[in-house]
Write a protein that binds this DNA or RNA. Structure first.
Lengths: 241, 241
DNA sequence: ATGGATTTGTCCGTATGTATA
DNA sequence: CTATACATACGGACAAATCCA
């Protein structure tokens, strides 16, 4: 089967318009309090019907990004996006400190499993080795900011499950094992659409875009201590190198 | 107006499925030659109809990522994605050397304009200062890899337009101005859907996801020499820090 | 070589979402 | 609000190709 030439790409026009307007807002082209162009002007700009533009604005209104006021226009309500710094010494909580009042992390599950080829390679283990798999969601001021899955070598962190339940933060668990300092060995960044589970956990509308970071942390001796797959909603976060 | 609760998100299911399968392939979970799960199994996994899965596979088949064979199954045809390294010394052409046979860059337009607030801030200039704006598309082995817009201070690079027309590569133009070495001061990474123009220039289907990099390069004295907004198709590239 | 199971390919129809006018 | 056209998604039925006992 061949896809038709006039394929619209599977992304609805109202969503592309909503994404474009949101980008202008979080990207700084429109500031909080600014009035958006009229629906008629936006319709002209995007070569779309006014109803289609209204659908896009309704979504942004539901998100709290804009607010429409009858007779006056549509205004920018909030225009902020958090920045997550990535470098040699990358710490999730520290990196976001100052950008939000409260950062919290909730462990969804923490269990033992056998390393897949990808995980084993990242941690320098043999495929099938025992590894801890820790699934978590992080929130800033109550808004979900990331969905992360972290794998650690079981051999080195045998009772990780108990310790994360007590200490909550990864840095604290490492410290409890005598790892005072650790460094980011590599970070690979890609992007894709959210799946159903991520959509629910992160409170997104299906089809939202995620920034995906694949990272390996090593101790001071250069030994891999964790491999993490972190997913950030692109509409709420940006990564700063 | 409020968006219905059963909102499908504006991104077609077949596209989300195609993106998920493509990610498994380029991400290494499936190697070239591997057989994909049967359409029935995939339908079960994604809670979708077999026809919807077939639509997703048709897209991947058109892309050349997979190939279906009646009675046998669907197989991975090609499983490669380019990696673009980002660090202190980031050079576009050098970074991709070895991953493709030919890297080329085509300037779409190169002209003088007045700096917007964002551009001025990045380059340490006053809003409205004269800046060069250079729009280009880069290709690896004939496949579009990036769409970049670069701004440079006019004061320092008065005849940039002529030089880029001759030298083609940014590093070469800098060298011609006596800048032997330069460094990456900051990189901010986000993601969004491609717009109509990017879709055409990069040869993507509308709705494709772009990785967006916003970067500032400085000379050895720490003076900003360029501000670039680069857009990479997420399905062809990943960024490595 | 044959039959049956598996898997992709094609056809029908129906309901709902998207976009315009 | 209506009406229209097309895309999306589902469901079922059956044909065609492949594989294996």
């Amino acid at each position: 089967m061949t896809v038709a030439k006039d394929d619209l790409g599977g992304v609805a026009l109202w969503r592309r318009i909503a994404d474009a307007i949101r980008l202008d807002i979080v990207g700084g082209k429109l500031a909080t309090g600014d009035r958006l162009p009229t629906e008629a002007v936006l319709a002209e700009r995007f070569s779309a019907n006014r109803h289609t533009v209204r659908r896009a604005l309704a979504v942004l209104s539901d998100e709290g990004v804009v607010g429409a006021e009858q007779g006056r226009g549509t205004f920018v309500r909030s225009a902020k996006r958090l920045s997550y710094p990535i470098g040699k010494r990358t710490r999730f909580t520290e990196g976001l400190a100052g950008q939000a009042n409260t950062i919290s992390s909730r462990t969804l599950s923490s269990r033992l499993e056998n390393a897949s080829a990808v995980v084993a390679k990242a941690l320098g283990l043999k495929t099938g080795s025992k590894v801890i798999r820790n699934d978590s969601v992080s929130l800033a001021d109550g808004v979900p900011l990331s969905r992360a899955t972290t794998w650690l070598p079981y051999r080195r962190f045998p009772d990780f499950v108990d310790r994360i339940a007590q200490l909550h933060r990864m840095t604290a668990v490492f410290a409890s094992y005598g790892i005072a300092d650790y460094a980011r060995a590599s970070t690979r960044i890609s992007a894709r659409h959210a799946d159903v589970e991520e959509t629910k956990l992160l409170g997104l509308s299906p089809g939202a875009i995620l920034l995906v970071s694949e990272s390996v942390d090593v101790d001071s001796a250069g030994e891999p201590i964790s491999y993490a797959l972190s997913r950030f909603p692109a509409e709420r976060m940006e990564l700063v190198v």
